[in-house]
Design a protein around this nucleic acid. Structure first.
Lengths: 174, 174
DNA sequence: ACGTACTTTCATTAATTTTTGAACCTACGC
DNA sequence: GCGTAGGTTCAAAAATTAATGAAAGTACGT
């Protein structure tokens, strides 16, 4: 561990016959990669989102793969992730079976739901665990100091759990 | 990427001649490891913190190493990290050069500062980058749609940047 | 119904992050 | 002042996570 929370650079390169990313596109990609890093989202996902975000029209699979110079697998996985998080959606031109991807209107609500998808399960599984810890401590030693610490922790945990649903009604739009 | 944000289990084991962790201690460690994972903090650090958190009295280096069954290097690094984040502090018994570690009173403010230390630098370096992206887009194509998206992004960025200092006055206690 | 354009899956490989431990400091008690 | 308890460093190993690409679906247009 140097400081935690670092990511290294390493630049991908567009496949021949696809337009390489313009400087401002690279810069936006870097921005999203940086932010994604904080949330623990891999760079390939952030790059895909950045490309869609800065594009005038919806983009298809091959173009994404070509311009970003990444593998089919990564594009597929990345699109799946973004789709599952509700961060992108697809339209289809009629007469083609190809899907065209674009960002959903509200990045804000996407981010909240992404955050929730990380934190919520942790909080839920923690609530009973913390209760067990409290029980364990009580029967073991019982320094009032430690007991108070743990009780406080548990209160936070439940408070956070209550708070989340208020932030954004789970499956719907906001 | 399966879902992102998973960590696998793998349990450490106390060195012989040190008390192995009791069930409730393990459970608290798991809780902290889980939470730390979200913030990108390694498990060893979380385990050390958990142990200090549930202990009645301050603990020394050897005891931490022994009970957690981890290497000297990890203990040293972990304590350094926690110390730098202001999450623990040490006292010394007189007549001994040994340091005894305990959590600082406010976990809350520690967490905020930890969060800040991740997010703040990213936001700062992003502000000018986003401006350059905007400039780039304007000279390149100029779909009003995309322009609006990016402008919004930039507004958020500055708003977040303004907001942070309010959350906790940078270097002091709260 | 069929063929294939398009996408997904997943075992393997590559990249990154974390842990280890032996060598190296460094300052305190004597 | 010196020896060593107490701690740090850091290169190398282990563990974890991300990316690749060939093989395997799937469903759409004909």
């Amino acid at each position: 561990m140097k400081t935690p929370f670092e990511k290294t650079a390493g630049r991908r390169v567009s496949r021949p016959s696809f337009e390489p990313l313009a400087p401002h596109e690279l810069e936006l990609a870097d921005f999203f990669v940086l932010m994604a890093g904080i949330l623990g989202v891999p760079r390939s996902v952030a790059e895909i989102y950045a490309l869609l975000y800065i594009s005038i029209k919806p983009l298809d699979f091959d173009l994404i793969q070509g311009r970003l110079g990444m593998s089919k697998g990564s594009v597929s996985q990345g699109l799946k992730f973004l789709r599952d998080q509700g961060m992108i959606l697809s339209v289809k031109e009629k007469g083609s079976r190809r899907e065209l991807w674009q960002p959903t209107p509200s990045l804000a609500s996407s981010l909240v739901s992404l955050l929730r998808s990380q934190v919520q399960p942790a909080l839920e599984q923690s609530a009973p665990a913390l209760q067990r810890v409290l029980d364990g401590v009580q029967s073991a030693n019982a320094s009032p100091e430690v007991l108070e610490r743990l009780a406080r922790l548990k209160r936070w945990n439940s408070r956070a759990l209550e708070l989340f649903p208020l932030l954004l009604p789970p499956p719907t739009e906001a």
